[in-house]
Design a protein around this nucleic acid. Structure first.
Lengths: 332, 332
DNA sequence: CCGGTTACTGTAACCGGTTACATTATTCCA
DNA sequence: TGGAATAATGTAACCGGTTACAGTAACCGG
């Protein structure tokens, strides 16, 4: 920058003002600046600018991991909004079970705001950020009431309720296995509630033996269901709500291996409507969750927060039931 | 930091030295520092540190977009290595066709090195970075020879050659449609070459009419093949090499819609072995590309570059043919 | 013709760290 | 016991921008 200033014959202040448009600059100087900056390929150093302005033009995204299909669309949604605002996106992963008390890799010291996915932060870290008035938006995870941090997630309970009711009412299933998701993720809780309420409202007794562990991972779900099948001979269940689509992969695999027909013997339903689900054999009945939209809205909310605008405390995006063959529909 | 120093009764220099372990600090002071830093929840400001040390502890990833299944595994591989090195990952998207001459969102001014995916940067920008001695690793894209920038990609040609030969030799196909990928991506070129060589070595004449546009996108591939089918009545092809698995989705959809049986009437083969491919109907014969591994190695190479170690100019990861039902194998 | 804007520019303090250099106290060894 | 090395710390310059403040010159309305 000094070089540019010297070359043009003005002070660095003038260069800075021209770049930021923070004060008028004479046309002749402007032209010279434009030319010299191009010639010298000058690019302002972000760290210096960050230090002086106390803005980083970066938003952070904190995830638990990157290997679920879920994150592709989420990132896509986030990135598109972040890009529009000419911000950059800093991505970090951090698991809750990481008990070592190291501080977060991203935070107020290197970003202007944080998008935090379920289970990637401890409540007290969150409280700390919040108390500093640092902009934070949670994704698929609501904050402790006392904090009032905005959150963007999807309607889990109603959709699960509706889907399980569909299995009961339209396909006459009553022994419905439920695969639990990771306990740190609220989605797991609400989906379970939807399931339980549906059973209750249809006067079906809840059978704890039918509650298996799926963890939203096909490997875990596969193992879990396989063991369950081995334990229960003959089969005494007629449907599986897999928790999410990834787990559904494992479920379908396990059932198929055991020669159990889908949906004739056992109906299967998932959650997410990930790209895969339409291609499973049979195509998976599931709940469409607008994941990219979640990312987009979360990012938008974060920018509103950064700019000081008000933001809804909870944004619950609607979900939609997608009936395919795995529950017994569309058999034609 | 000043606060911490004052509270402990030492100078900021001592605080800095303790934090960085750059010089010995007396045990008593160390203990006091530890305590006060925790109390004040002090976290060093990255921008200030960056400015003073001229290191950002950030690597950048430049992509064309985020909506291909390909990027999930790639990011996963990259992030795992970046995290290990306690660096952060700055993600930005930038399309080549973006002819406006704006400078890159990430570069030497805010990162210590760049991972650049095919087609997200212009050659002269690349030359500029290279001439500054800035660490860069290319992904699925080799630099102009003059530059000698390391690149990590997968073996495209040999695998495509082998797969097309398989269609010819084992399934007796001779009218093989080829769907071209995006022209800025080298993968497209090498896969095409593999296809052409396979035809040549089996004395099959090349028919330009069989070269369609797939762009590695299911939507484009679907449209393209559908039009082709409409134009050619009766069908005069017996196989499709789709270019990649995403395009294969569109191809399968188009064929199925037209009542063309896979693989009886038309064999289909893809590239990537994305998660979907095993679940397509029929399961897709494809080439397994170790995408996460590409990300991992690219990141490792970048760190080697940053640390001044030598790095291979081109890393070509082996690919493997996966035979499933869509080509006519495993029909049992 | 004059006080008040407005346009443009420079000087220098500041953002929050790091580190070269200087200083003092202590230890070590011939 | 004296000189050199070592430990522990402080002072202040510096990284590369931004911006408050001040100043000059041209312009404008009465």
């Amino acid at each position: 920058m000094r070089d540019v200033a010297r070359e043009v014959g003005v002070s660095v202040a003038t260069v800075s003002r021209y770049i930021n448009g923070s004060a008028p600059v004479s046309p002749e100087v402007a032209e010279r600046l434009e030319q010299i900056m191009a010639e010298l390929k000058y690019v302002p150093h972000s760290a210096a600018r960050q230090l002086a302005t106390r803005k980083t033009m970066v938003v952070g995204l904190l995830l638990t991991n990157m290997y679920n299909d879920f994150f592709g669309p989420l990132l896509y949604g986030i990135e598109s909004v972040v890009g529009e605002h000419r911000y950059n996106l800093l991505v970090a992963t951090c698991r809750l079970d990481n008990q070592t008390n190291i501080s977060l890799p991203i935070g107020p010291h290197n970003t202007d705001g944080l998008l935090i996915f379920a289970g990637s932060i401890k409540d007290d870290d969150l409280a700390e950020l919040s108390s500093q008035g640092f902009p934070v938006v949670l994704i698929h995870h609501t904050a402790p009431e006392s904090l009032s941090i905005p959150c963007v997630t999807v309607e889990n309970k109603a959709a699960t309720y509706k889907l399980v009711s569909h299995l009961i009412e339209d396909h006459d299933r009553r022994q419905i296995v439920f695969m639990k998701g990771p306990s740190q993720q609220e989605d797991s809780y609400w989906r379970k509630l939807g399931y339980l309420n549906a059973l209750r409202d249809h006067d079906i007794e809840i059978n704890p033996k039918l509650m298996l562990t799926g963890e939203f991972l096909h490997g875990v779900a596969y193992r879990s269901l396989k063991d369950f099948i081995d334990r229960s001979d003959p089969i005494d269940f007629d449907a599986v709500f897999t928790g999410d689509d990834d787990a559904a992969i494992g479920v379908v695999e396990a059932l198929t291996e055991c020669g159990i027909r889908i949906p004739e013997d056992v109906a299967v339903a998932g959650f997410d409507d990930s790209r895969l689900s339409a291609f499973l054999n049979p195509p998976l009945t599931t709940v469409r969750a607008p994941t990219a939209e979640v990312g987009r809205i979360a990012a938008k909310n974060l920018f509103n927060l950064i700019e000081g605008h008000p933001v809804d405390d909870v944004t619950l995006l609607p979900t939609e039931i997608i009936l395919r063959r795995s529950c017994g529909c569309n058999s034609g």
